[in-house]
Nucleic acid binder design. Structure first.
Lengths: 175, 175
DNA sequence: AAGCGCATGTAAAGGGTTACATGATTGC
DNA sequence: GCAATCATGTAACCCTTTACATGCGCTT
């Protein structure tokens, strides 16, 4: 159901087509909830069937702009305010660490170095994004303020995983 | 494919039945990669078909103990050493934050308080677990050392999300 | 007129959850 | 004898990914 609410949330900002939303998802939400275009188009059809969104305008090349309906807006708000949070997190990166004992320490170190580099570069990216938002480069709308909070989480998560990878290397070296 | 390698990894420690592995998954890997028993039984059948594991002994109540084969062991090791890491992380908790602007600040604060509490309690749990491991309560095997690294990640992740939730509340209050 | 990017979709296959179902053994 | 727990599985459904498919519009 999460994708459903993600789409409603994006449409709450204003009308958009499946294509627009796909791009928006890639740009902003891919870090916390990836979604591919077939999935998005299908879910938009369902939302439309259920009356939570409706076709606003049609453009060239069969472009369909969707608009959120009143019941759709009610639905997202209710999700945000009253539903319980699903805390499940899956990380291939972390499950791998559980099995490090199966390979040679040198290979583990090599792996952890690459992981540290990856997470650090991600963290740096989000930290820079956060700083730009703080300088006001994306305006001061409510939406921007919420996005700032999400970016903070992405930055912190990646930074702490980078530090974890570093800590793990030290742990392996000192014994 | 990740579940597949997770099962092979657990079986690399020694023979176990689907039931045993389900429990083991619940206890140790649920934090980083949840798996339900139907999924596990199905994957074990496939692994057996593919010759990566084999039935070792059969016990009471149709209990089947599986044992990893040489090619199975080769397969996990190869996964760990040579395959590229999938860094995708999905978090409903974080995608929600992107849409905070849709609800009242008081509701956001209430929500963030609950989130902070949840993540902090998880963090405390894993930190305690890590401390127990450091006191040697789980022995000093290679497996324990790897698990220690995974637990460290779980602790850090949850701690940083708890801090993020706290930071977000302050951010909302100071403006 | 050719090629690129816009824009929308379908199809197939696999991953994952939830509910249902069954029977055996152990402990009280 | 009864209840709890062990132990395995099937079925139905939904979510997600990857590959395939198509046609329009703009730019060069």
């Amino acid at each position: 159901m999460t994708l459903r609410y993600g789409l409603l949330g994006l449409l709450a900002e204003g009308p958009a087509s499946g294509y627009d939303i796909t791009k928006r998802f890639q740009e902003t939400l891919a870090a916390v909830w990836p979604a591919s275009h077939p999935q998005i188009y299908r879910e938009l059809s369902r939302l439309s069937e259920d009356g939570l969104i409706e076709v606003h305008t049609t453009g060239p090349r069969g472009r369909k702009e969707y608009k959120i309906t009143d019941s759709g807006l009610k639905e997202v708000k209710n999700w945000l305010a009253n539903s319980s949070v699903d805390h499940i997190i899956r990380s291939e990166s972390l499950i791998r660490s559980f099995f490090f004992w199966l390979i040679e320490p040198e290979e583990v170190l090599k792996h952890l170095q690459a992981e540290e580099k990856y997470f650090a570069s991600q963290a740096t990216f989000y930290e820079g994004y956060a700083a730009a938002k703080d300088r006001g480069e994306f305006g001061t709308s409510k939406q921007t303020e919420s996005a700032r909070i999400t970016v903070e989480a992405a930055a912190r998560l990646n930074r702490s995983l980078a530090e974890w990878a570093k800590w793990s290397q030290e742990k392996l070296n000192h014994k």
